[in-house]
Design a protein around this nucleic acid. Structure first.
Lengths: 189, 189
DNA sequence: TACGCTCATGTCAGCAACTGACGTCACCCT
DNA sequence: AGGGTGACGTCAGTTGCTGACATGAGCGTA
């Protein structure tokens, strides 16, 4: 047995989600999270840049998957079709997570403005990366940014419905329906 | 003459923008801003909820104008057309500001992740308000959210180009061109 | 076996972002 | 004249976050 319990990072994530859900984000101190994980405050901040980041640990992987799927989309696909491939990849990855945990996390984030800010920033990062991937496919600006951003809007709206109890279908279905809806809204009069 | 110099709020805004531009957001303390405006740190936080908010003072008015324009759009207009009316209103209001100050502000925000987060949050607030206005016009969900969000994406992309030296046309023109671009991207294959 | 390196964590001190409580004083209204 | 109001100052405290340094188990190497 090692000097310390294993997976301190994971323990911090669990502790943080639990405490944020129990007492609220503002009422939770970094020291409390660390104590619950059997660690110190300083160690918390060595693993996560700030108190919010602990809820967004998987976002790097998600971004990689989305970008890879956009880059791998059929060569004939238009910008929005390529982005839709990225959305499928996102739905696949996110759909693997335990839905109750996803909902808890969603509720915590929705309840706090600072956390909503961070989530928006993450999604904006995805959008920037997707726009770059589209440019690599030969899409010019500002079409690339608009398509990428519109796609991430779909991701956000779909995720909101899926994790927010409003829609019981699998995430991939909610997502594809939202893409169709967007197309029809944009085509409309 | 009053007990204090007038317009302390405005002085704080000027001082903050100047200091953020000179030394960077992180290297500027609230006490420094307050001192430059001839006030105390405590007074700064009475006027602005936090260090970032001082750069977003006009956002409430902008949101009101956008929402009012959406609500006042011709009855026959579809969701995206109504949102475009809101974008025109935004372009009008923002176009009145001194462009050099707008660019300075934009550069400061672009240079700092925390400030970008806040800006995204503000625009997301506009989107939520616009979506509500669309619902009041009879647009159902998720079309309302998608149209509102797509519109705010256009606002962001156009503002980025206009304030970021990439496009010298008047803001209203940049905005309308971006709407057209979005429509064509969404219509594409 | 003994030595020394690495690296995750602990400890400690400190700054800066806020916040609450309370005092002060010009201005205004009656 | 006198009392209320509102904008600001002062002070003390909590918390987020950081840098510098210490510690000790695991591990390779002599």
């Amino acid at each position: 047995m090692g000097r310390w319990e294993p997976d301190s990072r994971g323990r911090l994530q669990e502790a943080a989600l639990a405490l944020y859900a129990e007492r609220g984000f503002d009422q939770t101190t970094a020291a409390q999270i660390a104590a619950r994980a059997g660690l110190t405050e300083r160690t918390f901040f060595r693993h996560f840049a700030d108190k919010r980041e602990v809820l967004f640990a998987g976002s790097g992987l998600l971004q990689e998957r989305i970008v890879a799927a956009v880059a791998a989309a059929p060569a004939g696909d238009g910008p929005l079709a390529a982005v839709t491939c990225g959305l499928d990849a996102a739905a696949t990855l996110l759909g693997e997570a335990r839905r109750d945990l996803a909902r808890q996390r969603h509720a915590v984030i929705a309840a706090n403005p600072e956390l909503r800010e961070r989530e928006l920033a993450k999604i904006a990062d995805y959008a920037a990366a997707v726009a770059a991937a589209l440019r690599a496919r030969g899409v010019a600006e500002p079409s690339a940014s608009l398509a990428a951003d519109a796609g991430m809007t779909v991701l956000r709206v779909a995720l909101e419905r899926w994790a927010g109890e409003a829609d019981d279908r699998p995430l991939a279905d909610v997502m594809r329906a939202a893409v169709a809806e967007l197309r029809s809204v944009a085509a409309g009069p």
